[in-house]
């Protein structure tokens, strides 16, 4: 996994609550056996006017030319709800998003993001609101500083927090499976004490 330290990027404001993972990557694109090839289908039903995905919907904010290079997604509450499909964060990452800002995330989605190196940042509703108010008027560029847990945008700055180990994993690009495999003796000792029915 790639290490995450600081990131400065353009914000695209997606002013929608309860964005579910079916919207992020619809079911017809889940038949791959690889981790790649999902970015082009990100937000398919909103991004394209036709089922085949040949006609781009110019009204969908992510398609607007001024947001072409956005790498930070700003969204309303309960982002990533629904299906556990990791294909959703894979699609977001392949499209180019490195950071997602929301006032709340669905649990499974949040964990999936961290596991692949996307930084989900939870801010208060008021802070998210402030960012939404800023973003339509200007090309909003944010600097995200993970080691110091701070986001800055000109005069504005917001603190955020992350679970200690998740922060460490992102900053160091930890291979979480390898990390746990180093603890095999502890796991084996646990197994020896388990009741017979378990």
């Amino acid at each position: 996994m790639e290490k995450f330290n600081t990131h400065t990027g353009l914000v695209v404001p997606l002013d929608v609550a309860n964005v579910d993972t079916d919207q992020i990557i619809p079911k017809q694109f889940l038949q791959k056996t690889e981790r790649i090839g999902f970015g082009v289908h990100l937000f398919h039903d909103s991004r394209y006017l036709d089922h085949e995905g040949t006609q781009v919907n110019p009204e969908f904010i992510i398609n607007k030319p001024e947001y072409k290079d956005a790498s930070i997604l700003l969204a309303r509450e309960n982002f990533g709800c629904g299906s556990s499909r990791e294909h959703a964060p894979w699609a977001l990452q392949e499209y180019g998003f490195k950071v997602i800002l929301s006032s709340s995330f669905a649990d499974i989605f949040y964990g999936n993001c961290i596991n692949i190196g996307i930084l989900p940042i939870k801010l208060s509703e008021d802070e998210i609101d402030q960012l939404f108010k800023l973003s339509p008027n200007a090309q909003l560029t944010l600097k995200v500083d993970l080691p110091n847990n701070i986001i800055t945008c000109g005069e504005l700055s917001f603190k955020f927090s992350l679970n200690e180990f998740q922060q460490y994993s992102l900053e160091n690009g930890v291979d979480s499976v390898g990390w746990t495999l180093n603890k095999l003796d502890t796991i084996k000792a646990f197994e020896e004490k388990m009741p017979a029915w378990q």
Binding site: R85, I108, G111, V177, T180
Partner: peptide, 8 residues
Amino acid sequence: IGTSEVEH
């Protein structure tokens, strides 16, 4: 769980 966790 997600696929990374399935692997774990």
